[in-house]
Write a protein that binds this DNA or RNA. Structure first.
Length: 428
DNA sequence: TCTGGGGTCCTAGGACCC
DNA sequence: TCTGGGGTCCTAGGACCC
């Protein structure tokens, strides 16, 4: 007996960050709303009303200032603690609909629908339950490969099907031909802005054009990844569902500053702060870092003689998850690359060469006593901040007056994650 | 005045080895 | 005059994703 035809569902939340904000603020319904990136820099989520006004994804806020004013667009700073919490709730509900789930990003996941008797019905049920229990609208795309499921989801959104579900697998072939012949090729998962113009010269403009191109030839001209994409578009599943996300290979913490920064002292505060943040993630993962890098840069739009960007990568004598050691090393690197006289716009740190702490071996030169002491201190740091809130306990070198800190002028409350800011429900 | 942050994978090319 | 070649490891950079 041949193996059952594979079937994947992709569930994607609509306008996710805006939808999260709307749960707690019904006044935002039907209004043009955008959520901004860190530092209130760019638009990263738009309500349908904002899209209809022509607000582009990723556009810097200052470029649409006039429109914001004239059209009354509501602008909100991003509130990742809130979105992360809503995401977890949604993902745990979605997980009950299939034995196998891959959480692909904060607002989307794949489910294995292989062999399910009525996939369309389940898609509709998913949409209804998430709307009812969480209050976030989702769309469901169903198809025999992950790449096609992404496209099916795109169609569910674009065609605004009333039930928010679109199944490419149950469509008559001539309809599929017609649809794929009308979708621009850049909508395909894995086709970005660099590939599009190169495809153009080959006469590949639609999804159908790409699907029908010579897969071997395209691999030679582009990459093996693209060949897989082409096969997936033909309904041949090449990408499996990965349930267990493999351990992260690096941890990055970086931020643009709220104003330009000139002094080493301010940069040291920022780097201390970012590294402390990265180290918390490291310990949460149960990992240790064997190397790290630190970088600083001026505004990339600055004039040529005012441009400066430098980074430094350093290896640690032995892998660690100790904030104090990591910060010390990062600061050392920062002092090496710092040059006075520049207007710095951003700094960041990366933890690399990560390994599982459980598999640690003490190196010859590490004393057991020292390691235990560090362990205790880190536990205290994490538990205090866990109980009293992020930032309750921090290194003095982070500074307590961080004038360089990012802008977040339109921040909503942390409705679900901080006790003092829980939404208050009034009974009457 | 004001242009995000955090990831992954692949490839090309250099260093090195035998 | 002729002046190996294949394998592996590492890194930087490119491209893509959300």
């Amino acid at each position: 007996m041949p193996a059952a035809q594979k079937l994947f569902a992709l569930i994607d939340c609509n306008n996710f960050y805006v939808s999260c904000e709307r749960i707690f603020n019904p006044q935002l319904a039907q209004k043009p709303v955008v959520v901004l990136s860190n530092n209130d820099g760019c638009v990263v989520s738009r309500s349908n009303e904002a899209k209809a006004l022509g607000v582009a994804m990723g556009v810097p806020l200052f470029k649409i200032a006039d429109l914001v004013k004239s059209a009354g667009i509501v602008t909100l700073s991003s509130n990742y603690a809130l979105y992360g919490d809503i995401s977890e709730r949604i993902m745990s509900i979605l997980g009950t609909f299939s034995p196998s789930q891959e959480i692909y990003s904060i607002d989307e996941c794949f489910l294995d629908f292989t062999g399910l008797p009525d996939p369309d019905d389940i898609g509709r049920e998913i949409r209804q339950i998430i709307k009812q229990q969480i209050g976030v609208p989702v769309c469901v795309g169903i198809a025999p490969s992950k790449t096609l499921a992404k496209l099916a989801n795109f169609l569910a959104k674009k065609l605004a099907t009333p039930d928010g579900t679109f199944n490419l697998a149950s469509l008559p072939p001539e309809k599929v031909e017609n649809l794929l012949g009308r979708i621009p090729v850049e909508e395909v998962w894995g086709v970005g802005r660099k590939l599009k113009p190169r495809f153009e010269t080959l006469g590949i403009r639609t999804v159908r054009d790409l699907r029908d191109s010579d897969a071997e030839l395209m691999q030679k001209q582009f990459s093996v990844v693209l060949k897989r994409t082409i096969l997936e578009l033909r309904g041949q599943s090449c990408l499996d569902l990965t349930e267990m996300a493999p351990a992260r290979k690096q941890i990055v913490s970086s931020r643009s500053f709220g104003r330009y920064v000139y002094t080493l002292e301010d940069l040291e505060q920022a780097v201390t702060s970012y590294m402390s943040n990265a180290a918390v993630k490291l310990r949460t993962d149960g990992s240790m870092a064997g190397a790290l890098s630190v970088y600083i840069k001026t505004n990339r739009y600055a004039k040529a003689d005012e441009l400066y960007a430098q980074s430094m990568t350093m290896t640690l004598d032995h892998a660690t998850d100790d904030t104090l050691i990591l910060v010390k090393k990062a600061i050392h690197g920062l002092r090496e690359i710092y040059r006075p006289g520049y207007a710095y716009q951003k700094a960041g740190v990366t933890l690399m060469d990560l390994s599982a702490k459980a598999e640690r071996q003490l190196s010859l030169f590490q004393s057991e006593e020292k390691v235990t002491k560090s362990e205790k201190l880190m536990k205290l740091l994490d538990s205090t901040n866990g109980a009293l809130g992020k930032g309750s306990l921090f290194l003095a070198s982070e500074g307590s007056n961080q004038t360089w800190k990012m802008k977040s002028d339109y921040l909503t409350q942390e409705y679900t994650t901080k006790w003092p800011e829980l939404a208050v429900v009034k009974a009457r």
